[in-house]
Design a protein around this nucleic acid. Structure first.
Lengths: 188, 188
DNA sequence: GGACACATGTAATCGGTTACATGATTAC
DNA sequence: GTAATCATGTAACCGATTACATGTGTCC
């Protein structure tokens, strides 16, 4: 998801500042899709304001720097809805873990073990994140779409985690020996 | 996966030209991770040659333009192995489908139906790709790492597809009405 | 006194895509 | 003749990240 769509998606449910959009996209269910930086969010919001997709109001809070609260306009809502109706592209999935798994035979066993551990932890964190959403603590009020996605995510992630638990040993068996590069070279 | 790692990964199993690396990464199991363009592969290979990670030899074929066949060097192999031993980052997963699902209530029902269909097709294509690998037609000879990843992919994708089959109706029920934007505006 | 949360923004840089430029051979 | 496959490469551009710049209030 590009920054523009991310902002439109967030603003379609509630008004927010650039700072808040960043937080929401790191914590909420959006976190599975993005992690945009300030360097892309702020310029995107200014551009969108010029295009009339959002409007701004400045809010002065005591003790805090003033924040720019953005609201989506009718035009912005149209643009967002239209972009959602466009034909979809294939998912993009980048996984350093799978790369390591594929080349396990040339990776030292301890590094494979570490990667497996990290990947399991990652799945657990994502599952916890979803569990929080389901318990209603989330930011989005009752949204049936988010619920559907949450239950999809739960199923897929739980399954991936189960696979790891069941097949870790098999991966460790094909992993490289504990020999380091240096040891290997010295042995020659 | 960045272009450099993609090239190193391909060259670690066999010598290849830039053109072949592109094909391999579109067709093989790598296709789940990347789809690099010539505009990034060719410059990456030249850079890597200067860094001593790969070596080149020119091959003249009758009737075809000469091709530059790259081989990985010891240095390149070390660099690849080292990069695989580094701590992994979280997976990145971008899915336009999930974005549409999340905002289903504001997307016309026919667009949601279309997106569901496209997503199911996508999972089926990926599963077929894995099935081909398992039947041994692939380019990589017997690689236990690739087998492990293939069976992981099969399990996760099959599960995702099953979820879609079981829950399509539920998503369509919460989808927006068939009213277009124009009709909605006119109705007000 | 230092770290951290709040809050916005710019500039340098990077990695990558798209489009362009070139050119032979084969199949329809 | 024209489209497709083989084959390499450059240049313009784009989106995003990283680091920098600035400043207040609160907690330890």
């Amino acid at each position: 998801m590009n920054t523009k769509t991310l902002c439109l998606a967030n603003l379609s449910t509630q008004d927010a500042s650039g700072y808040e959009i960043k937080k929401l996209s790191q914590e909420g269910i959006f976190s599975h899709f993005v992690d945009a930086s300030f360097g892309s969010i702020y310029p995107a919001l200014s551009r969108m304001e010029q295009e009339g997709l959002v409007s701004v109001r400045e809010e002065f809070q005591s003790g805090k720097p003033p924040s720019k609260i953005y609201s989506i306009t009718e035009l912005g809502r149209d643009e967002f809805a239209t972009s959602l109706s466009a034909p979809i592209k294939d998912d993009v999935h980048k996984s350093e873990f799978l790369l390591i798994a594929m080349f396990a035979p040339i990776v030292p066993r301890h590094a494979v073990a570490k990667a497996l551990q990290m990947q399991k932890d990652y799945y657990r964190r994502e599952l916890e994140n979803i569990a929080e959403h389901n318990s209603g603590e989330g930011d989005c009020p009752d949204s049936p779409g988010a619920d559907w996605v949450a239950s999809y995510g739960q199923r897929v992630l739980q399954n991936a985690l189960d696979y790891l638990r069941e097949n870790s040993d098999r991966l460790l068996e094909i992993a490289g020996s504990e020999m380091t590069e240096q040891m290997a070279e010295a042995a020659e």
